[in-house]
Design a protein around this nucleic acid. Structure first.
Ligand SMILES: [Mn+2]
Ligand SMILES: [Mn+2]
Ligand SMILES: [Zn+2]
Ligand SMILES: [Zn+2]
Lengths: 140, 140
DNA sequence: GTGAGGATGCAAATCATTCTCAAGTGTCAG
DNA sequence: CTGACACTTGAGAATGATTTGCATCCTCAC
């Protein structure tokens, strides 16, 4: 009954309301990267009265608690996903909008090294790739 | 008298107006990554009547002609820089807002390889690092 | 069970950016 | 020179995502 994200909220001592439970559940059940409007639509299927303002507020709360992550694919809308899994980045298919996740330790190490060489400690980073599907026969 | 960017505009056959010349000059003379408001302020020092709408329009024109590049440091405002130099990325000092440019061929190659392995052709990518200055004695 | 502090819904406000439109400018034919 | 056509500009209105003010409602530690 309690979603994974709701569980994390409880552990962090966040006050839980019906609306927050709904948003938590929507994001727990999502396996894509919904924007705020999509979260709102899915939330309204559970509670038709939930307002978009509350969705915004709940998402911000969850993000500030590091329970979810905000993503920015450059289209002017914030997208969200559960933060618990392994750190990864996204390849966005610019033709279909499809999002492919990838993990690459080499690139993570390289980024840390670049920052270090510039005499900085790396706090955060953004990386997205944008591409189009490749015909398997031809390369590059 | 004609700025470097104005020269590029002429070569591309863009119709030049006084206002476009001013925006071109502001960006040619900039050695930072100004946002639209900053470009407008600098432009008004040359032509006090230039409107923000024209600055937006000129920046879009220059960007579409690949003469300048739009940057997004995650603060909700577009920033711009001349595009002619070598492809590079940015490390943003989250305490001071200072921007450090860096070039890293290894990371570029790695990104292409990641996309290729996912069966995609890489069209574009975003990469920014966010960090804080490191005391030179202690590491990591 | 109660109360104080926090949360909600709604509408209005922000903020960056784009658009509308009337007026201005440049280029060229006649 | 004159008019026509195409394009540009400034001002302000419009847009779209997000935040906020406010009156009301709910949660949770006591
Ligand atoms: Mn993801
Ligand atoms: Mn730069
Ligand atoms: Zn990473
Ligand atoms: Zn690059």
């Amino acid at each position: 009954m309690t979603s994974h994200i709701e569980q994390l909220c409880i552990e962090k001592g966040l006050k839980m309301t019906d609306q927050r439970r709904v948003v938590a559940r929507v994001l727990s059940e999502a396996n894509d990267h919904p924007d705020v409007e999509q979260v709102h639509i899915r939330a309204m299927r559970i509670d038709p009265n939930i307002s978009i303002a509350t969705v915004y507020r709940s998402l911000r709360l969850l993000e500030e608690a590091s329970i979810i992550e905000r993503l920015d694919f450059g289209d002017g809308r914030s997208r969200y996903e559960e933060a618990c899994e392994r750190h990864h980045h996204h390849l966005i298919d610019i033709q279909t909008g499809e999002v492919i996740e990838f993990i690459n330790d080499e690139i993570e190490e390289l980024k840390r090294k670049i920052a270090h060489d510039l005499n900085y400690r790396l706090i955060g980073h953004r990386l997205e790739l944008y591409g189009i599907k490749r015909r398997t026969d031809k390369d590059e």
